[in-house]
Design a protein around this nucleic acid. Structure first.
Length: 446
RNA sequence: GGCCAGGUGGCGGAGUGGCUACGCAUCGGUCUGCAAAACCGAGUACACCGGUUCAAUUCCGGUCCUGGCCUCCA
């Protein structure tokens, strides 16, 4: 079969063929580190992590680059508000991000470059753009001249008229064209910045991705990913900068964009005030539950975040852990893999996992290793079953639970079912569920 | 206004020109002291209006509605 991906550039699903037979280069836009990421940011990370995992099955070398944006107005503002040094804020936020991603089963990318460590590369690219007539300097600020790139707008299918008609275009007086955007922003001496050929300043938003992608993946690479809201202007501008700096060579061959997380149908965003952070969710749910919820809908569709969908994912994982038992991972199921290779059709893949669980529960021992391995490709079912059902601190001592189970067994033997049910209810109140089997009573945390 | 996605059963959510998606919830049953888990069974869907077709939820056109982007944004 082989992987098929929907390419935003062409609006079609296309068979994925890398530039080189055995290696793939992929870039995904990472976080701006000034605060905890929300579920929407987590979705992007999980989606591209899944793509990374799928690619690694078929290609010997996959280079996955995910940047860390550690220079930005929001960072400077947040640091000022906190009375904290910028490096302190970005350092501790990045640490939290790495921890949260690990909890969600997101593998570390091959490279996680930081913007502040690539200022020289950005300056070099800006100089090249000026030399080629695609950028100009105005009052210490360097701007990309959009009309100098005749193919501008290809990704978002926006023409310049459309852009300018948008109410929020900032038509600064020093711009030659309303659509021109900043490559290097001039700053006064007291603001955090770097020296450059155009004076003190800091890079514009888009240039870091172009410069770092060039450094780690080369002029043209295979896949570029990000959230749908980055299509315009961020990715459009990245494309323009890189192509113009590289004599027309395209930046990326496949563009992959994930849909949004919504709350009651509305986009999750700080400005709306409806964000749920990964941090807060991880305090209430296992990372696998959150990850499966994020993958429960197709990545290009919107996903409305509710307690119900999280609960459904929890139940699915309970069932799979029960079905897989202590089996070691074997080979993933072919139909499952085919679903993932069809543009990451995770809902269909999940249906396949349910099918494997059915077989495993019916006593097909071959289905257990297949279930474990298949779910593993999706980054879930990675723990052992006992840890899944009994893990998590609830403050109830396990010895105490066993003692109560023994008491209940005695009561049952004496046909004192009132007492037996009382003990069971008392444990249930502590979130402990008992299951009587022919081999005795077992327990799990709900 | 321009551009881009969508509207599937109580809910979540795939997919297909004719054949049960799947899951959650619900109802009935098996099992159980009763539960839990598991299993069996039940059921309902494809926004609306036209068109193409032997046949459309699936293709085409139109209408209505929802969400996103239009230089903060995953």
């Amino acid at each position: 079969m082989g992987l098929v991906l929907y390419n935003t550039l062409t609006h079609h699903k296309e068979p994925f063929r890398p530039m080189r037979p055995d290696s793939v280069g992929m870039y995904a836009c990472g976080p701006t580190v000034y605060d905890f990421v929300h579920v929407g940011n987590a979705r992007a990370a999980v989606v591209f992590d899944l793509l990374y995992r799928v690619l690694r099955r078929s290609y010997a070398r996959v280079t996955y680059v995910r940047n860390i944006t550690d220079v930005d107005d929001k960072i400077i503002d947040a640091a000022k508000r906190n009375g904290e040094a910028i490096e302190s804020l970005t350092g501790r936020t990045e640490k939290a991000y790495q921890d949260h991603m690990a909890a969600l089963g997101v593998l570390p990318p091959t490279v996680q470059p930081r913007a502040t460590q690539h200022i020289a590369e950005m300056i070099a690219m800006i100089e090249a753009l000026i030399a080629k007539g695609h950028a100009y300097v105005a009052h210490g600020t360097v701007l990309f001249h959009v009309p100098s790139d005749p193919t501008y707008g290809e990704l978002s299918r926006q023409d310049r008229e459309g852009m300018i008609a948008g109410a929020r275009v900032d038509v600064a007086p020093y711009k030659r064209d309303p659509a021109d955007f900043v490559l290097w922003k001039s700053l006064t001496a007291d603001q955090p910045g770097w020296d450059s050929p155009w004076g003190r300043g800091r890079p514009g938003w888009h240039i870091e991705c172009s410069a770092m992608a060039d450094k780690y993946l080369g002029t043209t690479f295979d896949i570029h990913g990000g959230g749908q809201d980055l299509i315009f202007p961020h990715h459009e501008n990245e494309i323009a900068q890189s192509r113009c700096a590289h004599e027309g060579a395209p930046l990326a061959r496949y563009w992959v964009h994930n849909g949004f997380i919504t709350m009651r149908g509305e986009k999750m965003a700080k400005s709306v005030g409806n964000v749920v952070t990964a941090h807060s969710l991880l305090q209430r749910h296992d990372g696998e539950t959150i990850r499966l919820t994020l993958l429960s809908g197709h990545y290009r569709q919107g996903l409305d975040w509710t307690d119900e969908v999280v609960e459904q994912s929890k139940k699915a994982l309970d069932r799979w852990y029960r079905a897989a038992g202590d089996a070691k991972a074997g080979e993933p199921d072919d139909e499952f893999l085919a679903a993932l290779e069809d543009d990451l059709n995770t809902p269909l893949a999940i249906a396949r996992l349910h099918g494997l669980a059915d077989r495993a529960l019916a006593g097909d021992t071959a289905a257990q290793p297949a279930l474990k391995a298949s779910a593993g490709v999706m980054g879930v079912l990675a723990k052992d079953a006992k840890a899944w059902f009994r893990g998590g601190a609830t403050g109830t001592d396990e010895a105490e639970i066993e003692a109560l189970i023994a008491q209940r067994a005695a009561a049952k033997k004496a046909k004192n079912y009132g007492e037996a049910d009382r003990i069971r209810a008392a444990l249930e109140a502590k979130n402990i569920v008992l299951e009587d089997t022919p081999k005795g009573t077992s327990w799990r945390r709900a």
